[in-house]
Nucleic acid binder design. Structure first.
Lengths: 217, 217
DNA sequence: TTATACCATAGGAAAAACCCTGTTCCAAGG
DNA sequence: CCTTGGAACAGGGTTTTTCCTATGGTATAA
């Protein structure tokens, strides 16, 4: 009976308590070891540079300060394509899932899954190279409607600033004052965003911003 | 050397993965055993009824579906005052912390603490009956401003329903239709809420609802 | 140099949101 | 029976938001 080398896992999550707990859980699994954790994407880059041993799998939280999951997975797929990234998040928001998968994640796990599912996912991602839970698979199918062309939909600096300010009790006129622009320009941003994001009103904008973690409370 | 009986911990969190991981972590601590977990407050009530052995400490997540942390801790302090409740949440929002503590929680832990801190908290809450991290202690002090009179500010059923619907792209007229009320009545709710909550517009309402976990995305 | 594209901006108008005050109905308490 | 209070709702006015279309300026690619 030859003892195989374990698969190395890295955890990226700003919630230390969760990360630490998850480590204990993973160490009860057969054939997996936790290499290290990182608090965010930037921290992970650091850790990768410092350590000779690369992780086989990275469990990556999406909403983090500093360098979030989207940026991180993009960096990883470009610089370390051999590492398999499993996204880990609480929201099963379709656009978020798709964005992660499109960015290069090999799977998407909801944080409310049963611990056993995690072991299953880890094994499957090592064997097959990807893992998709039923729920996510469903979302994937559901998303195959041809519309799209949603080429990553980039928001410009000013639009993001506006969005953040719009997530407050400020009036557009006040926002214009803060941003040092004409109210009419602000109205232009608003309209452009409504079109791009397929939303109907300011509340929709706030919701979109929160769901996509462009703004936060 | 007499072996003491361990302290029993129950975990209430709708994120199974987190709960499961946390269990593994706690079992590495000296003198603590996890009795069971529950997905939410209602589930916890169930578990408490079924099991003869009561937990000594409950680690309680705040934002859960069905029966959230606030309701749960209230129920616990009324029905099982001997159980020490530690609230567990990611947000360090002042109003949320205060609301939990006022509702009877013996401590408030942010989910981004170091795992060692959890052990410290568990030990301290068993010894002293309470635990407050530096951060929370600060918030507590900060909150001792005399203003308040914030007599728990109860929202009625209809107001909450309205609030939830207002957190969407629906128009007030549409909300009125859904709730089967006159648009003018809806306007009344709106006004009443704006006054009670000291907010200026619908975005403010959405933000309030989210911060106080009355609504969720 | 011209076409193109993008940005800030404007006019004008309809719809929705916001605000204040007042009426009716009904139930509960004195 | 009368009073009080809350809930639903209306009238009517002001402010913001929303929507559509259009123009001048500047950078840039052709």
């Amino acid at each position: 009976m030859t003892k195989k080398q374990p698969n190395y896992v890295a955890i990226v999550d700003d919630h230390l308590l969760f990360a630490g707990s998850l480590e204990k859980l993973i160490e009860t699994f057969n054939g997996f070891d936790v290499l290290y954790h990182a608090k965010n994407g930037a921290d992970l880059q650091q850790k990768i540079k410092e350590n000779a041993q690369l992780p086989d799998i990275i469990l990556l939280d999406i909403n983090m300060p500093v360098m979030d999951g989207f940026e991180t997975v993009k960096w990883l797929t470009e610089n370390h394509p051999s590492i398999k990234v499993l996204a880990l998040s609480m929201e099963d928001d379709e656009t978020v899932i798709l964005r992660m998968l499109r960015s290069g994640a090999k799977g998407y796990l909801l944080k409310d899954i049963h611990p056993d599912k995690l072991e299953e996912a880890l094994n499957e991602v090592m064997e097959k190279g990807y893992y998709h839970s039923e729920k996510v698979a469903e979302t994937l199918l559901h998303s195959l409607r041809p519309d799209d062309s949603s080429v990553d939909l980039v928001l410009k600096e000013n639009e993001i600033t506006f969005m953040q300010l719009a997530c407050s009790e400020m009036t557009y006129k006040e926002i214009a004052a803060v941003m040092n622009l004409s109210p009419k320009t602000i109205d232009g941003y608003r309209q452009e965003l409504f079109n791009k994001l397929h939303i109907k009103n300011r509340v929709g904008l706030v919701i979109y911003g929160l769901k996509n973690e462009i703004i936060s409370l």
